[in-house]
Each structure stands twice: as structure tokens, then as C-alpha cells.
């Protein structure tokens, strides 16, 4: 099976306030359609790794490949485009543009990509909202919806450009168990039905147990 993402010997250091070797020789790969989770103690470097994999953090050693293309060393504009086209990111805190409507939030990455007409983008965005059962919120302002709803909107936004991989940093960490289960179900369904690849950081063992593979980290290393 083809891999959508893999890394070769990634190392990362923080220099402030003291030199600190935070990621040590990370070799990792995610296959197409795979739903993987990352677990590990607080402070072991999960978020740091995810920021590198999502191309937002460029300050590391080693190599990162997405769809077998070398990402490491590309310039900022190219990385922005790769992020726009290939990566859907879901944060722990529901990061939405609060002054825009729900629909506009979902549409923005597609408008930036500009591969489709506005009508098509609107149609696709509504489709994603409907799939996540929040289409009735489309015209509401993003600041006026609940936390669980916000997280589903963020997932819809991550899906809008049909990305190669969805990454999440504790996307259920801020939700009650009902909403957390709901988000897990959505991810599971996306993986099973649409063959989407997912890489999700979580502290929730129950969540992790329902994923295809658990990657365990400790002290900046992948241990299993």
C-alpha cells in the first residue's frame, strides 16, 4: 500500500531557554486510508512532531515526505500551498474565524486553493456540513455555536479540499464524552467509507483503541 506521509530521521532541538533535544530520530509512516493515533506522556513531544508533519514548523533536521515528495527545505509559499491542498488540521481548541459565518469558515481554504468555482465550493461545503449534521448552522456566525459544533465545523473545514491526510492535536481533548464519541465516529467513518488517512494525537485510550494503529512516544522517541 502506498504511504501518504513518512519521515526520515527527524531531530528537533529547542535552543531557548536551554538547549533541549525534543525529538530524537523520528521515523514514521502513515499509509493511505490508515487511521493512526499518537499517544504518550505530556511533554514527550507529540504536538511538536505534529507541527513539523503539518509543515508549519520548518526548523528541524531530517526529511519529511508527503505523497513521496520531499517537503523539507521548500520555501514558505510552497509549504503554504502544500498545507492548503494536502493537509487538513484539527486543533484541540476550536480554531474558527469568529466574525465569519460557519459556511464561510468551511469555504475559506477552498477559496484560497481556487481550484473550483464559488458555486461548486459552496455546494461542497454544504455537503460536508450535511455529512456532519450541522448544515442547519451554515449561516450562523462562528462565534455563536457550541464547542462540539465548532469542532465539527473545524473538521468540515479540514475536509473541504479533499486532503491527503487529516491531522489532529487532541481534537477531542476539550469535549465531553458524548461529543468526543461523535468526533471519533466521524473520523472512523471517513476512514472506512472514504479511505481518508488520519493521524490524531490523543490522551484518550478508549479513542486510541478504536484506531487502526497506535504510535507510542516517550521522551522524544517513538517506542512502538
Amino acid at each position: 500500500m502506498e504511504t501518504v506521509l513518512h519521515t526520515k530521521n527527524i531531530d528537533k532541538y529547542f535552543r531557548n531557554p536551554v538547549p533541549f533535544h525534543v525529538l530524537k530520530n523520528i521515523n514514521l509512516s502513515v499509509k493511505k486510508g490508515e487511521f493512526a493515533s499518537i499517544m504518550g506522556k505530556s511533554g514527550c513531544g507529540k504536538s511538536t512532531l505534529l507541527y513539523i508533519l503539518s509543515t508549519m514548523d520548518r526548523d528541524y533536521e531530517g526529511e519529511l515526505f508527503i505523497n513521496e515528495d520531499l517537503i523539507t527545505g521548500q520555501d514558505g509559499d510552497t509549504l503554504s500551498r502544500i498545507r492548503n491542498e494536502h493537509i487538513g488540521f484539527v486543533f484541540q481548541f476550536h480554531y474558527l474565524l469568529s466574525e465569519f459565518t460557519v459556511l464561510e469558515n468551511v469555504m475559506l481554504p477552498a477559496k484560497k486553493l481556487a481550484r473550483k468555482s464559488y458555486e461548486e465550493i459552496t455546494h461542497d461545503a454544504m455537503e460536508k456540513l450535511r455529512m456532519l449534521n450541522i448544515d442547519h448552522l451554515a449561516t450562523k456566525r462562528a462565534s455563536r455555536v457550541s464547542g462540539g459544533e465548532k469542532q465539527r465545523i473545524a473538521i468540515a473545514r479540514a475536509l473541504i479540499n479533499d486532503p491527503t491526510i487529516i491531522m489532529g492535536d487532541e481534537p477531542t481533548g476539550n469535549l465531553d464524552s458524548y461529543n468526543a464519541d461523535n468526533v471519533l465516529d466521524i473520523f472512523r467513518q471517513l476512514s472506512d467509507e472514504q479511505g481518508l488517512s488520519l493521524l490524531i494525537v490523543t490522551h484518550d485510550t478508549e479513542f486510541a483503541s478504536k484506531t487502526d494503529r497506535i504510535i507510542t512516544m516517550s521522551d522524544g522517541r517513538i517506542i512502538s
Binding site: R81, R83, K112
Partner: peptide, 16 residues
């Protein structure tokens, strides 16, 4: 700040 971070995380470049 948050909006800027979101825009950049979802693929808007620094120049945008």
C-alpha cells in the same frame, strides 16, 4: 492573532 494563525495553518501564505 488567532485568525492569522488559522489562516496560515489552513494554507494562506505570509504574503496573503
Amino acid at each position: 492573532m488567532n485568525d492569522i494563525a488559522i489562516l496560515k495553518a489552513t494554507g494562506f501564505s505570509g504574503r496573503d
